[in-house]
Amino acid sequence: MTETTVAPRKGSPVARASLLAYLFLIVYASWFPFSGWHNQGLSPLIFLESTSMPRYWTMFDAVINVVGYIPFGVLLVYAMYPRLRGVWAFLLAAVCGCLVSGLMEGVQTYLPSRVSSNLDFYTNAAGCAFGALVGVLTASKLLEGSPLYRLRQSWFAPHASQGLVLLGLWPLAQIYPQSFLFGHGQLLPILSEWLSELLEMDIDLTAYVRQDLELTVEQYWLSETIVTACGMTGAALTLLCLLRKPAPRPLLIIGLVAAALLVKSLAMALLFSPENAFVWVTPGAQGGFLIGAIMLAGLAFAPHLAQRRLAAATLLLSLVMINTTPVNPYFAVTLQTWVQGKFLNFNGAAQFLSLLWPFFALWFLWLPSHKLNKP
């Protein structure tokens, strides 16, 4: 008797983990910057009481609101599959989109830096409904014995679901402007701001840790080289921890890094100007990229345990370097030209990924499932 491939009956863990991660991004983007909370005397449902268009709006904002909720609708349907499918899956996903969008707008009435808008509510709900329709039409093709599903089973270990979501977010973490290529996890400025507001006093953890440290140009280059090499190696080794033997390891690593660099270039062009698309190509970044590639060439077929430990070690070293190295003056001047404006929501989600991605990766690498399910 020969074995036949059967459709998964327990749904897609990747879809459910992706849905949770995307919901966190929506919350962060909608309520950023999470400061100045107070009751302004407005009803949380004020956005539903007005039938006129907001005074200040652009077509760009409307399109972004629709596009931003399309993946949410798709993931809702995928997460419910196969327990719920077809029309009922579409209706439930559309209702969930309305509820989530309404909750985001209602809470924004308590944030002075945000404006609750009926246009945002309708466009977000419409985007989720459209995404739900796409999800209904594609769920059976992508989640039941499809080539993509078979590749997932053949190339990736059973415990890889959370890791695939994590690695899918790594290229997106490049969107937020960073002083070093692949340099994520710079928490000290954010922690200083939060502690200052909480304790109502001026606290600068960055100055305390760095002690007015000043670096030469060569030292900045060396720091960027280390951060870039460790960031790239840590992410790629995390990918290697998920793979089975038949997986094309070099091809997948190249694809992951290429996606990150492409997103980085597009983000720099969009947030600043097209001529700044490749401003991240500095001598330090080039050196770090070369060193990281050499390290990965030697570790691509190393034992699973060694890859996991080295992934954690390189990510920790990158965190230490990024939080103890002074900000490059050139980068600080470049950042001043960034007019966030209509990118406020976008900026919040991107900053969330940039800050916390290394910590999510370390949490994943620490999970006992790596010991129980070896590729």
Rank of each mutant, 00 (worst) to 15 (best):
E3D: 15
E3W: 13
A7P: 11
S12K: 03
R16Q: 12
L20F: 11
A21Q: 03
Y22V: 10
F24I: 09
Y28K: 02
A29S: 15
W31F: 14
P33W: 09
P33L: 09
G36W: 10
H38G: 05
S43D: 13
L45R: 12
I46V: 15
L48I: 10
E49R: 15
S50N: 11
S52L: 10
P54N: 15
P54V: 15
R55Q: 13
G68V: 04
P71G: 05
F72A: 08
L76A: 13
L84A: 00
R85C: 00
G86C: 11
V87G: 00
W88S: 12
A89E: 07
A89M: 06
A89T: 09
L92F: 13
A93N: 02
C96G: 07
Q108R: 14
Y110M: 12
S116K: 11
Y122V: 15
N124D: 12
A125I: 08
A126Y: 06
L133S: 10
V134T: 08
T138W: 00
S140C: 00
S140Q: 10
S140V: 00
K141N: 08
K141L: 14
E144C: 08
W155E: 07
P158K: 14
S161Y: 09
G163C: 14
L164V: 03
V165E: 05
V165I: 08
L166V: 06
W170V: 10
A173N: 12
Q178H: 12
Q186G: 07
L187Y: 10
L187D: 07
L188T: 13
P189L: 07
D202N: 12
Y208I: 11
S223E: 02
E224G: 09
I226K: 03
T228H: 12
M232V: 08
A236S: 14
T238V: 03
L240W: 03
L242A: 03
L243V: 04
K245L: 05
P248R: 05
R249V: 08
R249K: 14
L251W: 10
I253H: 07
G255T: 09
A258M: 06
A259Y: 08
L262W: 05
M268E: 14
L271S: 04
F272D: 13
A277M: 04
A277H: 02
F278P: 07
F278D: 06
V279Q: 11
V279R: 14
P283N: 09
Q286P: 00
I291G: 04
L296R: 06
L296C: 09
R308A: 01
L310A: 05
L310D: 03
L319F: 03
L319D: 01
N323K: 03
T325H: 10
N328C: 07
T334S: 08
G348C: 10
A349W: 00
Q351I: 02
Q351M: 12
F352M: 11
L355P: 02
L355T: 02
L356P: 00
F359C: 01
L362T: 01
L362E: 00
W363R: 02
F364M: 05
P368A: 05
P368G: 06
